[in-house]
């Protein structure tokens, strides 16, 4: 565990808290892509079955449980509690175009051809693109509530911080590197660059998040 990794995980945790806070206080899931949230449930469920048969650390298990539970809870809030506030007509990204190719990539690139490993790889690839329905929705509406942009920024920063974490681990742990996670992680961070640009130049200067027409 190094400082980048810890801050990354805390940023991930913060993003979940911000999202829950947004839904609860505005009593609305407006501006949030149900499809992206559903993909995160798929990501965590595919990646963390090792909870059942392998103990890594208390920290590791607790975080995994929090991610699975909170992502399911968010889906529940969107699907049942605040269903009328979600507009499916703007959440139109075709997720099958993400799930299919990610599964094929998981079959090709993995660390062992068995269920656990293929699903692990699949989850890594899927996580890297899971934000696309959300960004697509943002693109369509051209604007976002400030709190929603804080959520997205925390989520993007989480992945961005994993990159210095890998560099740090590479140099301090004798060349340790995970090519699948690193490749997917760089792609995932790259997807946020446009968003980060607007977030840091506008939202953090006190302006509303608006995309140029």
């Amino acid at each position: 565990m190094n400082v980048f990794r810890l801050l990354g995980d805390l940023s991930h945790l913060a993003s979940i808290i911000i999202l829950l806070h947004k839904i609860q206080t505005t009593r609305s899931c407006r501006g949030i892509s149900f499809k992206t949230q559903a993909l995160y449930v798929a990501v965590f469920v595919a990646r963390y079955p090792d909870l059942l048969f392998r103990f890594i650390s208390f920290y590791n298990s607790i975080m995994k449980l929090i991610f699975i539970a909170s992502s399911c809870y968010i889906l529940y809030l969107m699907r049942y509690r605040f269903r009328p506030t979600h507009d499916p007509s703007i959440d139109t990204f075709r997720v099958e175009y993400l799930i299919g190719p990610c599964f094929v990539l998981g079959l090709i690139f993995n660390y062992g051809f068995n269920m656990t490993e293929v699903f692990w790889s699949f989850s890594i690839f899927l996580e890297s693109v899971a934000i696309l329905p959300q960004l697509f929705m943002l693109q369509r509406t051209g604007e976002a509530e400030t709190i929603t942009t804080h959520y997205l920024a925390a989520l993007g920063i989480y992945r961005a911080l994993y990159i210095p974490n890998w560099i740090y681990r590479y140099f301090t742990e004798d060349g340790v590197v995970d090519p699948i996670a690193v490749t997917a992680g760089i792609v995932q961070t790259g997807l946020y660059l446009d968003f980060f640009y607007v977030y840091f130049t506008k939202v953090l200067q006190g302006e509303k998040f608006e995309l140029p027409a």
């Binding site: 990794r5 090792d50 890594i56 590791n60």
Partner: peptide, 10 residues
């Protein structure tokens, strides 16, 4: 607990 492999990052 075993040392965390890069694969076991969250």
């Amino acid at each position: 607990p075993v040392k965390e492999h890069p694969k076991d990052e969250l």
